[in-house]
């Protein structure tokens, strides 16, 4: 496997959907290739950084508007 091929397979590898033979090929390449190891680490770091962007809260005015629309919709259905 070449470095270019590894890069092309990386998403499938990270998503764990590669067939076994290809997965083993990726892992064997990573054992032997420091450049690709750095590349994969950087992609993992990038993914990790994104998890900090997750917004969990619904502002109360937004929630109020949604509930109002829900109640109006329920009334129309009744």
């Amino acid at each position: 496997m070449t470095c270019r091929e590894l890069v092309a397979l990386l998403t499938a590898y990270l998503e764990d959907v590669l067939p076994r033979a290809e997965r083993e090929g990726v892992e064997a390449h990573l054992q032997a290739c420091p450049d690709c190891t750095v590349y994969v680490e950087q992609v993992r770091t990038t993914i990790g950084a994104l998890t900090h962007l997750r917004e969990e809260n619904v502002p109360q005015p937004v929630l109020d508007e949604l509930v109002e629309a829900f109640v109006a919709g329920s009334r129309d259905d009744a």
Partner: peptide
Amino acid sequence: IVDPDRFFPRVNELWPDEWADPPRPW
């Protein structure tokens, strides 16, 4: 996915399709 210029060409005798401009460790 990656800028093709960062790899040696497929026809390179020594390092076909390997990194020509590899990522530097962070």
